[in-house]
């Protein structure tokens, strides 16, 4: 069996969501293992991390995107060869949950659009639509759930089911289930690619 460095599978994952929901915090918690106290606006950052999933090494590229609407022209770097999307909202802010649906539509629109030229026979477009974009829906800021929760777990679950996406509630501050997001993500990616057989029980898990 080859060494992990040479065999590492490259996967590109993008985090998207409304401003101030904690995309950068989740990324930094995952990649660097600490919770940044800063309140910096992101334009776009790329992080890499080696990660082991189901015994296989993965070379993860995590794109931390800008939440600001000013930067919201959907960059091609977020559409081309991105394997999966993590959509983040904050459970203490209803607006972020509502806007995530717009972002979802945008992803579908853009990913569909960019994939078309790759399919040579035009009438097989329907196949393109049937293939699922791997998604994980993340409700962040779980640490605030007792004080100011305004989006319930059930609502999140319902939305994720409608999209056939994985769902999880996390807290970057308390480091709750941050790793799990990426495990879910890889699971979604690999099962969408047909590399692993989907097992039923993994649908929704709430930590």
């Amino acid at each position: 069996m080859p060494g992990p460095e040479t065999a590492a599978i490259q996967r590109k994952i993008a985090l998207m969501g409304y401003p101030c929901v904690g995309k950068s915090s989740l990324t930094l918690r995952f990649v660097q293992g600490h919770f940044p106290d800063a309140y910096d606006t992101t334009i776009e950052d790329l992080h890499t991390k080696l990660f082991k999933f189901q015994g296989k090494p993965y070379d993860l590229q995590v794109i931390d995107t800008a939440g600001q609407q000013e930067y919201s022209l959907f960059p091609r770097s977020c559409a081309l060869d991105v394997h999966g999307y993590i959509l983040v909202y904050a459970i203490d802010d209803r607006k972020t949950f509502e806007i995530i649906q717009t972002i979802h539509d945008k992803i579908m629109e853009n990913v569909g659009e960019t994939s078309v030229p790759l399919v040579l026979v035009g009438n097989k477009l329907d196949l393109q639509h049937s293939s699922r974009v791997p998604l994980v829906l993340v409700g962040n800021k779980l640490d605030l759930q007792h004080s100011s929760r305004s989006v319930s777990t059930e609502e999140g679950k319902k939305l994720a089911n409608a999209w056939k996406a994985a769902f999880i509630e996390t807290s970057a501050k308390d480091n709750t289930a941050v790793q799990t997001i990426f495990e879910h993500m890889l699971y979604e990616i690999e099962s969408a690619a047909g590399n692993i057989q989907p097992t039923k029980k993994k649908e929704c898990r709430v930590m």
Partner: peptide, 10 residues
């Protein structure tokens, strides 16, 4: 810095 990032495109 933050203001510049947020408002730059505008």
């Amino acid at each position: 810095v933050n203001l510049a990032r947020v408002l730059g495109p505008t």
